[in-house]
């Protein structure tokens, strides 16, 4: 038991990194995903086509590859070539990748709303933007909570991919200790940490679903 306490500090430090990547990605990729979804359903074919291609690219290649590309290859790309430190590079890759997934969830949600809702709002004089903000999106949120919850929990675990940029997230911290001490206990502790994080998220989303359950459709 004492051993567990001994290895806690580095593991907690790793958890800190994991949580940072998780929270920053979530906060940035959800609004970006919503913006992409709205562009994806735009009547301007060029806009929706571009977003369509973007989503294909981001979902069609591994997140790890995207991260490696942004960190190692982006500096050599003409015009936009910039060298990002490891943490920002990881964040950019995660945000761009997750926004694509969130965009598809938002799009499905928006398109599941009955046309009558738009017409009802329209004859009352609401503009498209007002209809989206006041009528459609509040209903979309209720419908997409389960897939958003799924994606969010996946994100917690995906953060472990940042080890490829040599960043010390929870899993890499655990692995370091495993290799040093020849014991698998750190893995078990790390698993417990992941479970606690996903438990908090699961609980949070259940609360949200309950909140939205006040009305039926």
């Amino acid at each position: 038991m004492n051993y567990v306490f001994d290895i806690l500090p580095p593991l907690l430090q790793g958890t800190g990194v994991t949580l940072q990547v998780f929270l920053i990605t979530l906060v940035l990729s959800v609004p970006l995903g919503l913006a992409l979804a709205l562009m994806r359903i735009s009547r301007f074919k060029t806009v929706s086509g571009l977003v369509n291609g973007y989503i294909w690219l981001m979902r069609g290649t591994p997140l790890m590859l995207q991260m490696l590309f942004i960190y190692f290859a982006l500096p050599f790309v003409p015009v936009i070539g910039i060298r990002l430190p490891d943490f920002p590079a990881a964040i950019v890759a995660f945000v761009l990748n997750y926004a694509a997934y969130f965009a598809e969830i938002f799009r499905a949600g928006i398109q599941s709303i009955d046309r009558g809702q738009y017409e009802g709002a329209r004859v009352l004089g609401l503009t498209y933007a007002q209809t989206m903000r006041r009528i459609v999106l509040p209903q979309v949120i209720k419908r997409i909570l389960p897939p958003i919850s799924n994606e969010t929990i996946t994100l917690v675990k995906d953060t472990s991919l940042i080890y490829v940029l040599a960043m010390n997230d929870l899993l890499r911290a655990a692995r370091g200790i495993v290799q040093r001490d020849f014991t698998t206990t750190p893995f078990i502790v790390a698993a417990a940490f992941y479970l606690i994080m996903t438990l908090v998220l699961t609980y949070g989303f259940q609360r949200l679903e309950k909140k939205y359950a006040v009305y039926d459709e």
Partner: peptide, 22 residues
């Protein structure tokens, strides 16, 4: 098919447009 807004109460359905539009 009425097209009421299911996420709003009866009162909120009625006051939504006067508040947002007017």
């Amino acid at each position: 098919h009425f097209n009421l807004f299911p996420h709003l109460t009866v009162l909120q359905n009625i006051i939504e447009a006067p508040m947002t539009v007017k």
